[in-house]
Nucleic acid binder design. Structure first.
Lengths: 230, 230
DNA sequence: AAAGAGTGTTAAAATTTGTTAAAAAGAAGA
DNA sequence: TCTTCTTTTTAACAAATTTTAACACTCTTT
């Protein structure tokens, strides 16, 4: 597992190195810059996963540093370190370009919490609606990400439509998957032909799943299908 | 123990992910949607235990999102996140469709308290919502989940309408099942044609159940039917 | 007892689904 | 570009499910 890279901009040397040490112990790869200008230079020459910027810095403050970065079209997550004395509306302004901010003095666990939250979000490949992608269906194991359906030692590759449909059925396991919803979700259109196409895929899936008699895709006439597994 | 699933709709990414993380730490399975429309899409394709909706959102606000969900007949518990500036009568309006609401800025423990309250209620009355799906009818065994009706060694597969109707009769065994209730539950509409269709299904069920003379579906003229088994 | 509404029953009609195969569309290489 | 392979759609027919129609019967009310 590759370490996640953080760019830390902090002019206070003491605080800066303490933070760097702490985050490195927590298994991040941290680059420390002593002011905004240096930070921007480093930023341009390396790829970081996220940034932590002190707002108050000589030469180039965190706000304007962020502005420069955003002007390049970069959407990298940024956390600000703000002073407690700072007025609320100024903080509001910062929030526009930043993903989060934290008020000094803060405790390191608090900062770590925010960082891990962002990192987790990043590693979810940017999806906001994180759906599960591994399902147990009777004796089968269905991995919607890898698009594989496995029973015992036999692994079957699924096509994308097969995969999408089975995934929806799994998300609604033991409950009805409305035909119209499946069509609108997968085929983007609900008409006679997409409907018949879906029936063809239901047949395919039933065929794939026939080796475990305890599970079944049953039809609810006029409504949709239900993946039954009990 | 399976995690309870929460659908969280919040357009403010910062607040959204922090809430998500917080609730996940508290052992909930949280799906975050960044606006009302996305939330509705996700809602249709998965089963959630409850929802937390921000009232103010682009595309589809929490109020109209709730309206859409309620229109599908779904009674899922919903908590609103409202802004403090909101007028009291507007909040009153929201309360109609929602189970609870909480005013920003709120502290996370407060939200958690409301969520656990609802979850506790759900898991208690879970016995109410979790309907039995196996019934003894005289010498018959009826499995509403598998849609089978068995006597001795003979197993009969039921269609979805036959199954639904027999299940309702069983839930009301020895008591009257109102015609209008059955129609609204199964056919979603109470009119002359659905009513006659129901009579046809009553005839089918009587035919299926004829091998045990001790049980009977009797008609209560003008009211409905009763599955008698004594 | 007569009339009207409600129900019992059967069968035909209409709709929906199951299944297989061929056609069309897309993707990957040569 | 042409060929080959995979995926998806369309077609065709079979089967299952549900609705509608038709007619007989029952219950309630007058």
């Amino acid at each position: 597992m590759k370490k996640n890279k953080i760019l830390l901009a902090e002019d206070d040397q003491n605080l800066g190195t303490i933070l760097q040490d702490f985050l490195e112990i927590k298994n991040y790869d941290v680059t420390l810059a002593v002011n905004g200008e240096k930070a921007f230079e480093v930023f341009q020459t390396q790829n970081f996963d996220m940034c932590v910027f002190d707002v108050m810095m000589p030469k180039l403050d965190g706000f304007n540093l962020t502005k420069k970065i955003r002007e390049t079209g970069n959407e990298i997550p940024i956390i600000f370190l703000t002073a407690k004395s700072m007025s609320q509306d100024k903080i509001e302004g910062f929030k526009v370009g930043a993903d989060d901010y934290i008020t000094k003095p803060f405790n390191t666990e608090e900062l770590l919490l925010r960082i891990t939250a962002i990192m987790r979000r990043l590693n979810k490949s940017g999806e906001t609606t994180a759906e599960p992608d591994e399902f147990k269906i009777g004796k089968y194991l269905f991995n919607a990400k890898k698009r594989t359906l496995t029973i015992d030692k036999n692994s079957q590759k699924l096509t994308s439509k097969e995969n999408s449909l089975l995934k929806l059925l799994c998300l609604k396991k033991n409950d009805i998957l409305e035909r119209s919803i499946a069509l609108k979700t997968i085929w983007k259109e609900d008409n006679y032909f997409t409907s018949r196409s879906m029936d063809v895929y239901i047949a395919k899936l039933r065929n794939y799943l026939k080796d475990d008699a305890s599970i079944e895709i049953i039809n609810i006439h006029g409504s949709g299908f239900k993946l039954q597994d009990e």
